[in-house]
């Protein structure tokens, strides 16, 4: 395994957003180093998904900045942020469920298929070459994640855990430098979760990217994270290495409720 170096790839600075009086994210700052697996954890409604939605451009923060590779992402649209190199998955899946697995991955090749509209109308040689290349690349990722035999089956025919993995494959097809995963182990059983932990670490190393993870499965988070930030009511209440977080009384209290410490 590569050891994370200390260059920041993503810096959140004093990020805040509120929805009708509720402060979903409240003055959050954090730095994610290149090549590390960084986790954000916290109870339901803590604001984790909201942070992801701000980073990927779906929400505009009330204040604060999101700096990715030295560029402020605030005010950029989601498709631009994807182009800058941020790929994501969604807590509740956003797959194109009527389409096949391969079609889903090919859509993620939008930025890499270099063809013009009129060339596509005529299906010129360039179109054939580019399409074939995109398909090869998509198959390479399907192979990598053991999904190649499902390439031509529509998404809706798969059970949830496989759909999760397909969404991961699709995000990877974007060739992101920062991969943000919102509860990738949601709905997975223990064996599948362990398998996923290995996959995420492998992806980080093989594709040389940085992973920002939101996950409720604590064994997974503690196993694979280089560093962790804990959110509660949109505020950071702790950050550090997994063992520091595990023993932090604030965190235990946030998760188990007041009084847990004394019990």
């Amino acid at each position: 395994m590569k050891s994370p170096n200390n260059d920041n790839i993503l810096t959140l600075d004093n990020l805040s957003i509120s929805f009708g009086g509720i402060k979903a994210v409240d003055g959050l700052s954090l730095k994610v180093n290149e090549n590390e697996i960084f986790s954000i954890i916290g109870p339901n409604g803590a604001g984790k998904t909201t942070v992801f939605n701000i980073i990927s451009g779906f929400y505009k923060p009330d204040s604060g900045t999101v700096e990715f590779k030295g560029r402020n992402l605030v005010n950029h649209k989601p498709h631009e942020i994807a182009r800058f190199g941020v790929g994501r998955t969604f807590q509740n899946l956003e797959l194109f469920s009527r389409m096949t697995v391969l079609e889903n991955l090919l859509i993620a090749k939008h930025l890499y298929v270099k063809t013009r509209f009129w060339e596509e109308l005529l299906k010129t040689k360039n179109v054939k070459v580019e399409e074939a290349r995109a398909e090869d690349e998509a198959y390479a990722i399907l192979n990598y994640l053991g999904l190649e035999q499902y390439a031509h089956i529509p998404i809706s025919e798969f059970p949830f855990p496989i759909q999760k993995r397909i969404e991961l494959a699709r995000a990877l097809s974007l060739k992101p430098e920062l991969l943000i995963l919102d509860e990738p182990a949601g709905g997975l059983n223990m064996v599948e979760t362990e398998e996923l932990s290995t996959i995420i670490q492998r992806i980080r190393d093989d594709y040389n990217l940085t992973v920002l993870l939101v996950e409720h499965d604590m064994s997974m988070v503690m196993n694979i994270s280089d560093r962790i930030t804990v959110l509660q009511y949109g505020k950071e209440i702790a950050d550090g290495k997994p063992e520091e977080i595990q023993n932090n009384p604030m965190v235990i209290e946030a998760y188990l409720g007041k009084g847990a410490m004394h019990a």
Binding site: F58, G87, F90, L95, I107, H110, L111
Partner: peptide, 11 residues
């Protein structure tokens, strides 16, 4: 099918 997914794919 899904504007959210489409835009996060760079479209």
């Amino acid at each position: 099918d899904d504007e959210i997914a489409a835009s996060s794919m760079g479209i």
